[in-house]
Design a protein around this nucleic acid. Sequence first.
RNA 1: GCUCGGGUGGUGGAAUUGGUAGACACGUUGGACUUAAAAUCCAAUGAACAUUAGUUCGUACGGGUUCAAGUCCCGUCCCGAGUACCA
Length: 1023
Amino acid sequence: MSYNFNDIEAKWQKYWEENQTFKASNDREKPKFYGLDMFPYPSGAGLHVGHPLGYIASDIVARFKRHQGFNVLHPQGYDSFGLPAEQYAIQTGQHPADTTQVNIEGGVDKAGDKIEGYRKQLDKIGFSFDWSREVRTSDPNYYKWTQWIFIQLFESWYDKESDKARPISDLIELFNQDGNTKVNAVCDEGVANFSAEAWQNFTEKEQQEILLQYRLTYLAETEVNWCPDLGTVLANDEIVNGVSERGGHAVVRKKMKQWSMRISAYAERLLHGLEDLDWTESLKETQRNWIGKSVGAQAQFKIQNSEFKIDVFTTRPDTIFGVTFMTLAPEHDLVAKITTPEQKEAVEDYVQATAKRSERERMADVKTISGVFTGAYAEHPFTKEAVPIWIGDYVLAGYGTGAVMAVPCGDQRDYDFAKHFNIPIKNIFKDVDISEEAHAGKDGTVIDNSDFLNGLTYKKALKTAIYELEKLGQGKGKTNYRLRDAVFSRQRYWGEPFPVYYKNGMPKMIQAQHLPIRLPEVEKYLPTQEGEPPLGRADVWAWDTQKNEVVSNELIDDKTVFSLELNTMPGWAGSSWYFFRYMENEKRDEVFASAEAMQYWQNVDLYIGGSEHATGHLLYARFWTKFLKDRNLVPVEEPFKKLINQGMILGESAFVYRVRFVNVVESTANILDEVEFNKVEIESIEEFVNKYNFKIFASKNLCKTRLYPDANFGTGQLEISSNFPLIEEILLNKFLSSEKLLKGISISVQKIHADVSLVNTSNELDIEAFKNWREEFNDAEFITEENGKYIVGREVEKMSKSKYNVVNPDDICNEYGADTLRMYEMFLGPLEQAKPWNTAGITGVHNFLKKLWKLYHNGEELSVSDDKASPESLKSLHKTIKKVTEDIEDFSFNTSISTFMICVNELAAQKCNNREILESLAILVSPYAPHIAEELWSKMGHQESIATAAYPKFEEKFLVESTKTYPVSFNGKMRFTLDLSLDLSKDEIEKAVMEDARTQKQLDGRTPKKVIIVPGKIVNIVG
RNA sequence: GCUCGGGUGGUGGAAUUGGUAGACACGUUGGACUUAAAAUCCAAUGAACAUUAGUUCGUACGGGUUCAAGUCCCGUCCCGAGUACCA
């Protein structure tokens, strides 16, 4: 019986489903292992071979852990809220819930295209997912709990004393006792002090307004990243290079009233928590940079002839005597207040000009120095000298206090600014030349011209300066974080609705027992005419506080019926806690996850996903977990113990080269006269050009000229320089009769993508298929290589539909089988590395599986004997057990595939058919190629699935060697090998080596100076 | 600019604490089987010279440490990722 993978795989996938083989129980008897993949966004494009890479890796580990006796939780679900579904809804009018369902479960979309569906595609690869615990973030039964967590955040504040989140009721109690003077909380900047009495005398509304400044999720007027094209605000991590991550749209800064998450309260814990996580250093570093802790001081400068004071943050208080000016961000509150009448116009112009610039412009143009003097002066805290106050857009409103004390001798930006505007530069570093550029003045530099800091070095001066500032009451040590509070509102339809209604303009939470608040129906998914979010179009979107249900907007009376929040939550809301949801399989209606379940599963032992989530999802999920831990809602501080980022699988794009006629010399009489179009029925150059322009394709090797990017052809297309003797010659032979015609035409070649499915493994294009691929190519002509083949060019690029380089895993499963796909994806290279997909290479692992199959068969029949295995076979097996076990633990899956290949090659050479070997081998292979392993296992007489068969135990005794093949080197160069017993002593080895004829030949009469012998390793003869 | 990775055959990639560089595959070439093709099997395959033993050069480049360096140290170049006026 030959290896009929299609039947085998279908059979076992059905078996696993029917028998619920991978259903995890919350049974506490066994040790637990929780292996998780970042759940996918179910897009309509379906899976390509890059998507399952991480899933295969985690599946191998999950299956391995089952063999080792762990109770394994390996769930899967869908992050099904998001922008693409909504954009598609806007275009087609279909409800995002419908398209999302089709994308997951399969069906036919409105365009009539058949969609296979994520689930079917995943099932085909044979994952051991426990689908009984599936989650979908857009399912009301799920987002009910997302809304519930939001309410918990609203009902909490961050107490710096106990360094954790506490219920808001505790805060109210504190306010009632002592006002806010004794409260040490993370809150908005500039909350006014009040006494207990004052608190009690505030109106209800005033109290709520104050509490809002303390809540962990709060509504506030903040400067946000507004993306006009997407019609929504974006979080910092959703912006890349000043444009939106999705679609690359422009982003501008705008003040808007928005929900925010006070993630900044957790900055220090998020930073500190990284230390104990088993994540890659680079990912931790990315998060550290994003949190951006800097330690320094806050200093206060009085403004001359004014009530106002400017607070600045600096990491270098030691350089305070070098201050020669101050710079405020143009958006700084004080700008309007301190500007002198003479400078008013210039300042206002500048402020307006900067406000107009988009983020991208501002970023693109960091080199240009700009700024304006406000006319005001501050007073230096120590020297009491007048310090001019400038504004400049190199100072960011959002960082620190939005103001800097400029020390041009020590900071290059201040230096450049000072030079540009002829502001004096004061050197406070001893024996340092600052005539060309600023000097950091840290290591070994001594401070000068600085009163009490004179003669000190950086570290000492830093402490002294802070001490003196504190003494003056004009500053203190301070730590600043780059991490900003995260904007939590989106002006979108396809997201979680907030469980919030508004009474007297103040947000009120809907009580938890009335959740979920379901998304209302709207007739269109666009913002309203008035610029409200899409939920502004809903007719039934008001909260009745008597009936506790969503009712028609017509009933709003602001007494018992109120308007509901129109924004929805961002994409990261649902993904910030889903890993806890999987733990719960029974009481999903009653709790987001039960305490018992969470106590058992704790946190994710292995999390695999893309590194693009470093500053988004992974940070937010850690934040929510810490919050939930503070409120005793979950038992753990960190959600993901170990994390691996799988590398991207790149596509190998195929290119065809299209001939384009340029610089056609029109109507040159003497050329036309002599032209004979006897090979094609053409009567003029114009006709020829019109007919064949962009219709002739030249094979790759005819176009071996340098490629130049060509702006005229849009992105991704290139033009090749225009010297093509070969093509010209062929053109002449094939289409034209006169060489002179070519003088009237010059050609260029344009490179365009061809669908990779039209190309075989030898890079030959299927010309007929290509002609039929797109209508415009139907009548194309091809100039082939001498052997008549059309060869395409290849280039490695990101896999994408628009590049026609997508390889569908379904096709690979059909042609080679899921086991081959799984093994080949692992065989490609290290999991974390980006690597190109090359379907040609797949035959290697496919052949391996065929050889594996043959090892268990003699002709058509299963051939397994109960005889004792030979020592060689046992050695091959145990070598493999050792290596593969180590490899899985190191996540080095590519090398374990090699190990299997070596093992099977050896066993085949030994003609091994012993049950004791072959059963163990089937278990070893099973995590990687589960279908063939199940089939062989059952053929060998087992009734139960192989999934929980005990992993073979490695035994050293089978590997013990008696001899070693020693490499014998002369001056470090290996010359020959010599088999010697491992029992020999150093002296005996030396004797044996020296007696060898080859040694004497190498020495050629010389006497060795030295002989290095490392028993069991090497012999090196020097001299 | 800064931070973190990385540079090994025609290709993807191996190489425990420094100890036989190129495992395992792909590709290529030659051969067997076949009317033929596919499939399968066998052999060769870092480069150059010698074509029989053998010699020399080879892990981005230049130095160094060592009996021995892809691996450790110093310098340079290149590629990738993250971040970017962060005071």
